[in-house]
Amino acid sequence: MVKVRSITRRGLLHATMATGGAMAFPPLRAWAATGLLNVSYDPTRELYQDIDRSFSRQWAQTHGNSPVQIRTSHGGSGAQARSVLEGAPADVVTLGLAYDIDILAQHGLLATDWQGRLPHNSTPFTSTIVFLVRKGNPKNIHDWPDLIRDGVQVITPNPKTSGGARWNYLAAWGWALRQPGGTADTARAYLKTLFAHVPVLDTGARGATNSFVQRGLGDVLLAWEDEALLAARDIGPDQFDIVVPPITILAEPPVAVVDRNVQAHGTTDVAQAYVTYLFSDEGQKIGARHYFRPVNPTILDANRDRFPDTATFDIASLGGWTRVQKDHFADGGIFDSIYSR
């Protein structure tokens, strides 16, 4: 039978409601004013861990020991830009390519002339696209044509969500255009064949690296030079080799302060100082340590041994990001037509 007994001693409902009320949202939102959020792309995890630590130390020294807490989030560059559009409160964006910041500017989050506000087109570090292969290069991959040989599987992320993937794609496109008799049609044919060799399209560069490194998928990973060097030197020192193709693209991942958000958070000064710090000698040295090519020529020269020489072409030679994005990666663009349905 039913036992009539009360559970009034701080019953369950009371307890849950009281705790719920006491721990509401304000503490979570509060940090946005005292901290700084850097929304970044995938392979910069290790880089910004160091930058954030060193910048906040420097900031504390010059600002009367009031420390600033910096947080950095990572993901595919396009996906990250979209999460900022959807309301992620980024003070600073450090994305994989300029177009993803242009999108934010188009929606009024920052000035459309953002790229002229910092030196070097707002790009503190450059990189290139290289090949990461299994130790000893068993499939004998040295140049772009080798990628579409029979039995070669290529790992590259999804160009619709990843910045690195778009650089990979455009590096291949640019190479194909530069071949004797190369036209948009031959380039398209090359890329169609190339993507027929791609078994998995991860949404970010780090996911692709995981597929190659940890899941053992594929024979060659198209990767940011920094991501490839990280994998080859730090993650699996005896498992991989880096192959630098004779010609590749000069990747320029830019940075910007998100005007509308820093005004709302009152973080304009610290955000400005943060992006400026990336161009400082310390910032450049940290970048070099994480295999990003410093734009400061002196520091680049000092680290020459880390970065192999290769011929590069830049995005301007392909018509600039706005045009490239529209022709290749927009819905119904060239990428849609070559990635088999």
Partner: peptide
């Protein structure tokens, strides 16, 4: 979520971030 460490990452999401960061 938006996957922002310290702001919108719950424990399971943080596990994913750590796992992807080796």
């Amino acid at each position: 979520s938006g996957h922002i460490p310290g702001l919108t990452e719950t424990m399971p999401l943080h596990i994913e971030t750590l796992y992807n960061g080796y």
